[in-house]
């Protein structure tokens, strides 16, 4: 099986975040790591390859620093990597990210395309689904388990309230992977050394720009929740005050 894993570099979970001057995103001087669900997607791809043989390709879109994600993927066992490398890939909406990825892989045929369920920074949970639509492939989200069979794959989806759903799908397909579905391996020191010799294809913005359009979604303002004090007096007979108070606590403050 030939599997593509879409991976994103995101700020480290415990990193102290500071807003940028424009107040539209965070400052760049922060530690980054692999988006957690993407790490599980990669692990699942490597396990599928170990079971059914094939190839695992990791892809990311982002500035130079994002190559760290691919290096880690190669060190853990991915066979090759694709880097859409440009600062312009930061802050794209999910539609444009999906369009850029689709354009970068237009000459390849994958049996499975994995993305993480969502990114730890934007949290759109859309890139994989949109990518499937652009490529004209079936997709399933929040995947907990993947079993290959003669007609394709049987996947287990996580639903609300502890329910699961099993779906039989043909290949090729796009799956968005839930965190925690397997146990992540570590990159070995030898793996890190060997990663250097594995192919890494760089794709420029110019190569995929014609497939992209303007962002349909953008962040106008980001801010730390402002604390404010606001005292209100409720007048009237006690019964009515109590009624109004309950209504405010329920609907405005949503604490009861």
């Amino acid at each position: 099986m030939k599997i593509l894993v879409c991976m994103k570099q995101v700020p480290q979970k415990d990193a102290p975040l500071k807003l940028n001057e424009a107040g539209t995103w965070i400052r760049e001087d922060v530690s980054y790591e692999v988006n957690e669900p993407d790490a599980f997607a990669l692990e699942e791809a490597l396990r599928q390859k170990e079971k059914h043989s094939g190839e695992v390709v990791a892809i990311t879109a982002g500035p130079t620093r994002a190559s760290q994600v691919l290096r880690e993927a190669l060190a853990k066992g991915a066979d090759r990597a694709i880097h859409l490398e440009d600062n312009g890939f930061v802050g794209l909406d999910a539609y444009n990210t999906a369009r850029a990825i689709a354009a970068a892989i237009k000459d390849e045929k994958f049996d499975l395309i994995f993305t993480g369920l969502q990114s730890d920074d934007y949290g759109y949970a859309q890139t994989g689904v949109i990518l499937a639509q652009i490529l004209g492939l079936p997709h399933a989200t929040i995947i907990m388990q993947i079993e290959k069979n003669d007609s394709g794959v049987r996947v287990k989806r996580e639903l609300e309230a502890g329910f699961f759903q099993f779906v039989d799908m043909p290949l090729p397909a796009v799956l968005t992977i839930q965190s925690g579905i397997n146990k992540l391996r570590y990159a070995t020191l030898i793996g890190i050394k060997q990663a250097k010799t594995k192919p890494l294809r760089k794709v420029t913005m110019a190569e995929v720009q014609s497939a992209m359009g303007i962002n349909l979604q953008k962040i106008e303002k980001m801010y730390i929740p402002e604390k404010s004090k606001n005292t209100q007096f409720i007048d009237g007979p006690p019964g009515e005050i109590a009624k109004k108070l309950v209504e405010k606590l329920k609907n405005e403050l949503r604490v009861i």
Partner: peptide, 21 residues
């Protein structure tokens, strides 16, 4: 982690990956 003066920028990608692993 402790890094006061962007010490990490003195390390290359492999060195950081080894450390992080």
């Amino acid at each position: 982690g402790v890094d006061f003066i962007e010490f990490d920028t003195l390390l290359n990608d492999d060195e950081r990956l080894v450390r992080d692993t």
